[in-house]
């Protein structure tokens, strides 16, 4: 805006200012409006509508029929299958979260410690991220852990004189957990390794030099006293992202355990698989939305607890 050389009347000035304000307002909404409108239609409205539906009976219709109060929520908590799905996913998280965090950190430390070939090894560990859960499930189910003598895992066992194992099927011993955990581990560990590598590269080199001068031998001592404490925020982020993802597990459970004439899906049914059956299969949207809100509450609760537990240093994550 140019400098005013001729004094103008206050009325004209006010009108010009109003025009400029209007122009700013229009420009802002022109840029932000499309996304904001989309969020209202495709996030706010469904969540609010779903919340209303969860207090109503709504079977085979997406409009609320009869008000039932908390009945849908109570039905779910009385349903052993739903409770079992929560236990299943908690158990799954208990396996996959520590395994992913430890392996991702280990890979990052290994890759970070070498001088030649860093990019190559980083790429190799990262490239499973390109694979979909469907494709990986296919490989795990039909080859590595197919339970037949030609499956890769059983071929390896044979080399050690072991009989083939039926990996996916009998609940005892629960080998299917190995299948479910290893497929997700392979798919996601590279992603978290990248986060740890980024965290490692932010640690000032001078700290290691100082420790070396002070006589630290490197290895475990430096890891415990320098590396790990300075990776706390990265670790916290990795754990939280990992838990959120684990509680929403769906793809590998459906693709590995379900199938024509197979009852394997009964072995482990996480909440999203359960809700998929209720909402999409039986078209019971009152019950389905109630379940979705229970699961959302659990995930948000764990995230908040986790943040408090790790005492997030926000200032470092700007």
């Amino acid at each position: 805006m140019s400098v005013q050389s001729v004094p103008t009347s206050t009325a004209a000035h006010a009108s010009r200012q109003r025009r400029r304000q209007l122009r700013t307002t229009l420009a802002f909404w022109g840029f932000v409006g499309p996304l904001f409108l989309g969020l209202i239609v495709f996030t706010y409205i469904p969540v609010l509508w779903g919340f209303v539906l969860s207090f109503f009976e709504a079977k085979r219709t997406v409009t609320p029929t009869t008000f039932v109060g908390l009945e849908n929520y109570l039905t779910l908590f009385r349903d052993r299958a739903f409770i079992q799905s929560l236990i299943t996913v908690a158990l799954f998280a208990l396996f996959i979260v520590p395994a992913t965090t430890a392996l991702a950190l280990g890979l990052a430390l290994l890759v970070n410690s070498i001088t030649r070939g860093q990019t190559f090894f980083r790429s190799v560990f990262f490239i499973p991220t390109a694979c979909s859960y469907v494709v990986a499930s296919l490989v795990w189910k039909l080859n590595i852990f197919n339970g037949l003598p030609f499956g890769l895992a059983n071929m390896v066992l044979y080399q050690f004189g072991q009989d083939p194992i039926v990996w996916i099927g009998p609940p005892n011993p629960p080998w299917y957990w190995l299948v479910l955990v290893s497929v997700r581990l392979w798919l996601q560990v590279g992603f978290y390794m990248i986060l740890f590598l980024a965290g490692l590269q932010e640690i000032p080199r001078s700290l290691y030099e100082a420790a070396y001068v002070d006589g630290a031998s490197g290895g475990w001592t430096t890891f415990r006293n320098i590396t790990f404490p300075l990776l706390r925020n990265t670790t916290a982020a990795v754990v939280v992202l990992n838990i959120i993802a684990a509680f929403q597990a769906f793809d590998e459970f459906i693709n590995i355990l379900s199938g024509t004439g197979s009852s394997n899906i009964n072995l482990a049914r996480p909440p999203l698989v359960y809700l998929y059956g209720i909402a999409i299969g039986s078209q019971d949207f009152g019950l389905g939305t109630a379940g979705a809100f229970i699961l959302a509450a659990i995930i948000i609760g764990i995230t908040l607890l986790q943040n408090r537990f790790f005492a997030f240093g926000r200032e470092e994550r700007a």
Binding site: L39, V41, F42, T43, Y44, I45, P46, V47, W49, G50, F51, L53, V62, I244, F247, Q248, F250, L272, L275, A279, I280, F285, G288, T289, G291, A292, L295, A296, I299, I300
Partner: peptide, 16 residues
């Protein structure tokens, strides 16, 4: 909206 876990909204979004 970032607080809402993505996959959990699939039932309400399906309804919409």
């Amino acid at each position: 909206t970032l607080m809402i876990p993505g996959a959990v909204t699939f039932v309400p979004s399906y309804v919409l």
